[in-house]
């Protein structure tokens, strides 16, 4: 502050001079027609570059606003992309056969959203109640299981992944022994089949299939292969550590398994 005052004290006349000179210029340009014409002419001739520089600076000053405008535009354009559309084309695969009656239909779906990786994984598919997706229907992909529909909405459905600690799926071996498939929340490539009788002969490499007993997945759907067995002392059962045939967290395409007999079988269960 003291330095500022000193600067003014030493250059006071100059500062006053410049200030009053600017005031005079303003008065001259605004009150004298020949001078204002000359000024306007000069501005037109020389001002182009000045205006360019000013607009250059201004274009930086409103970058934030421009960003928002562009973001809105991008959002609008993204809404026009095919990825943003809800695919109403229904691909349902079924077999028309006299010998066999269709029991399961497979509704092609895409996994459009998934929870971050954690012990309880869920994902969302782009098929909902308007295409007959209901709670409790299984979701599979080309190699293995994905999960079970938990909460269908009109156009989408939340799927509880098999990599969820609440998952209980009936799984068995080709020789008829079966147990419960569950996940310990540790390794997304491995799951455990519990409650296989300890006398069942299981070798590493044996294939684990779905049993179909819970009317969620079709019978005989491959889940994975046995890695090793752990006999649980005193319970008469053994646990099978299995390696999954698919990667439930990475697959993008899935099929909703729709069991046409489910209601019939449910009535049997309730009686």
């Amino acid at each position: 502050m003291e330095q500022l005052l000193r600067i003014f004290y030493n250059n006071g006349s100059f500062i006053t001079f410049v200030g009053l000179q600017l005031l005079c210029m303003y008065l001259i340009i605004n009150n004298n027609s020949p001078q204002s014409k000359i000024f306007a002419e000069t501005m037109t001739v020389r001002g182009g570059s000045v205006n360019d520089a000013i607009s250059g600076v201004n274009s930086y000053l409103d970058l934030e606003e421009q960003n928002q405008v562009l973001q809105r535009e991008i959002a609008r354009l993204k809404g026009l992309l095919p990825e943003a559309q809800y695919n109403t084309e229904v691909a349902v695969d079924s077999i028309d056969d006299r010998t066999y009656l269709q029991r399961y239909t497979f509704l092609a779906a895409n996994i459009v959203n998934r929870s971050p990786y954690r012990p309880n994984n869920t994902c969302v598919i782009d098929r909902g109640t308007q295409l007959g997706v209901k709670q409790g229907q299984g979701v599979v992909d080309n190699q293995g299981l994905i999960g079970i529909v938990d909460l269908p909405t009109e156009r989408h459905a939340r799927v509880i992944s098999i990599l969820h600690r609440a998952t209980r799926i009936s799984a068995g071996l080709s020789n008829g022994h079966y147990g419960t498939l569950l996940w310990d929340g540790q390794d997304p490539r491995r799951m455990t089949v519990t409650d296989i009788p300890d006398y069942a002969e299981v070798s590493p490499g044996d294939t684990i299939y779905t049993t179909g007993y819970s009317n969620v997945f079709p019978t005989g759907q491959v889940i994975g292969t046995v890695e090793n067995t752990e006999i649980q002392p005193g319970t008469g059962s053994q646990h099978l550590n299995i390696v999954l045939a698919n990667e439930p967290l990475n697959s993008a395409n899935a099929y909703v398994v729709q069991d046409l007999f489910k209601e019939e079988l449910e009535t049997l269960k309730q009686r």
């Binding site: 005031l23 005079c24 001078q35």
Partner: peptide, 12 residues
């Protein structure tokens, strides 16, 4: 009636 012209010269 030349507002500013004499003022500029006098200031200078």
């Amino acid at each position: 009636e030349t507002l500013g012209v004499h003022a500029a010269a006098a200031t200078f």
